[in-house]
């Protein structure tokens, strides 16, 4: 099959999704589509199951914090970014799903793409965005009792003291107490 051009891809998507697609732009040949977080499952199942689109490969899931970001295109504070790749059409698509700060939650796409398992857990760990219906949603990089979400913009680079305020115990005292 031949390469799917971005205009064609976009018109197909718009035909299926209607005005759920809030915004779109094309940057250096990569089509990027903005939606609200609640519509993610609809869009992802279109992309996965429709034979004209045919995107079988999930490349990445990542998160962005748009705190203090001055851009009309940013609908909410957080966004989850999905990149899909179509092997037959040799093209990529980027989906940006905005998630509100008041309730940072979005549906997991694990049922469509099993590869989303670890990447969604990473976004959960780093940004505190919950993925509804994820089978095993827990921290993947930081220790499980780590209280914060390090990649949020309002989290200081040096942390909130987690790196020095752990329970210190004297190894030799422990021996003497035994």
């Amino acid at each position: 099959m031949s390469r799917l051009e971005n205009e064609k891809l976009l018109s197909l998507l718009q035909e299926m999704m209607g005005d759920l697609i809030v915004n779109h732009h094309d940057f250096r040949g990569l089509l990027s589509v903005d939606i609200h977080g609640k519509d993610i499952l609809t869009l992802v199942s279109c992309i996965h199951q429709d034979s004209r689109l045919n995107f079988p490969l999930l490349v990445d899931v990542s998160g962005v914090d748009y705190l203090e970001y001055d851009d009309e295109a940013c609908l909410e504070r957080f966004a989850v970014i999905y990149i899909f790749y179509s092997i037959v059409h040799d093209c990529r698509i980027k989906i940006r799903a905005f998630v509100p700060e008041s309730d940072p939650a979005i549906h997991s796409i694990y049922n469509e793409y099993k590869g989303a398992d670890f990447t969604e857990r990473e976004v959960y760990d780093m940004f505190g965005i919950r993925f509804i219906d994820h089978p095993n949603l827990k921290r993947i990089l930081m220790p499980e009792d780590y209280g914060s979400n390090p990649l949020r913009k309002d989290y200081p680079l040096k942390g909130l003291g987690e790196r020095s305020q752990f329970p210190k115990y004297n190894i030799y005292n422990k021996i003497e107490n035994d």
């Binding site: 930081m142 390090p150 989290y155 200081p156 680079l157 040096k158 942390g159 909130l160 987690e162 790196r163 020095s164 752990f166 210190k168 190894i171």
Partner: peptide, 15 residues
């Protein structure tokens, strides 16, 4: 690596 995740010197918990 003056960052949130790294222990700033192992002498904080080992002799």
């Amino acid at each position: 690596f003056d960052t949130y995740t790294l222990i700033q010197g192992i002498d904080q918990f080992l002799p």
